[in-house]
């Protein structure tokens, strides 16, 4: 059994214990094991687990990311001297000496109140800079739905009339599968499909796979999508 603390600057917000083999979810959601009520924290922000006595941290697709010693991580083994940042909060192993006094029975409720200051109702927290949302497709004109599609984590995207397309576009002569956007080793490629209405990129009809660049305009009839690299 090991003690861990969630800190905000030099104040302890939470302390909790974790056992070997256990996995705790840290987040803003009601179902998180360790709840941090702050808009900069995702509902399921990160998971801390101990496997064979070694701690691991996993980022659970959080918006603001999980950083170990300043580097964004997905899943990594950590050591007790590492600094783990979740938004503005810091996760440390054990309880820090200098703030141990504030953990007395009188001090603890005050700390808890401190943590709730950041709820949107009382004081809107400044949304932290969104980082690394990665490449995306934005509908520039036409009724393509959804209007914005993040490509992070997607290897294959379908655009067309089909209801199961990732971006559904309508219109005369638009094909059920108008085109695919596929991740290959060196970037996203547009792969046109058989269709009456041709797929154009920057006003040039595309007939073979085309590697997309930042700012490219994909035009299919009245629809225009823009490919943006973050």
């Amino acid at each position: 059994m090991k003690q861990w603390s969630v800190m905000l600057q030099d104040k302890v917000i939470r302390t909790f214990a974790i056992e070997d083999g256990e996995r705790l979810i840290i987040g803003r959601g009601d179902d998180a094991n360790i709840r941090i009520d702050n808009p900069a924290i995702s509902r399921h922000h990160a998971a801390l687990e101990i496997q064979n006595g070694k701690p691991y941290i996993q980022d659970l697709c959080s918006l603001n990311g999980t950083k170990v010693n300043g580097k964004a991580v997905d899943f990594i083994q950590i050591s007790e001297s590492d600094t783990i940042n979740l938004g503005k909060f810091t996760l440390i192993s054990g309880t820090p000496e200098n703030s141990r006094t504030t953990l007395s029975s009188a001090g603890a409720p005050m700390d808890l109140e401190d943590a709730t200051i950041f709820t949107p109702g009382k004081k809107p927290a400044q949304p932290e800079k969104k980082e690394g949302i990665g490449p995306l497709l934005q509908v520039a004109s036409g009724n393509g739905s959804p209007g914005k599609l993040l490509l992070k984590g997607r290897n294959s995207v379908k655009i067309g009339k089909d209801a199961n397309s990732d971006i559904v576009i309508t219109g005369l002569f638009i094909a059920a599968s108008q085109c695919y956007i596929s991740l290959r080793d060196n970037g996203y490629h547009l792969i046109p499909q058989k269709s009456w209405r041709k797929t154009k990129v920057n006003n040039i009809t595309i007939q073979s796979p085309y590697k997309l660049k930042d700012g490219d305009q994909i035009v299919m009839g009245k629809h225009c999508l823009r490919f943006i690299v973050d």
Partner: peptide
Amino acid sequence: GLPKNIVTRCIGVTMEQDPEY
């Protein structure tokens, strides 16, 4: 020395990425 049984991608918990093809 890493445990053999920890998978980094799976269905259900977090599938941050489309499957490998």
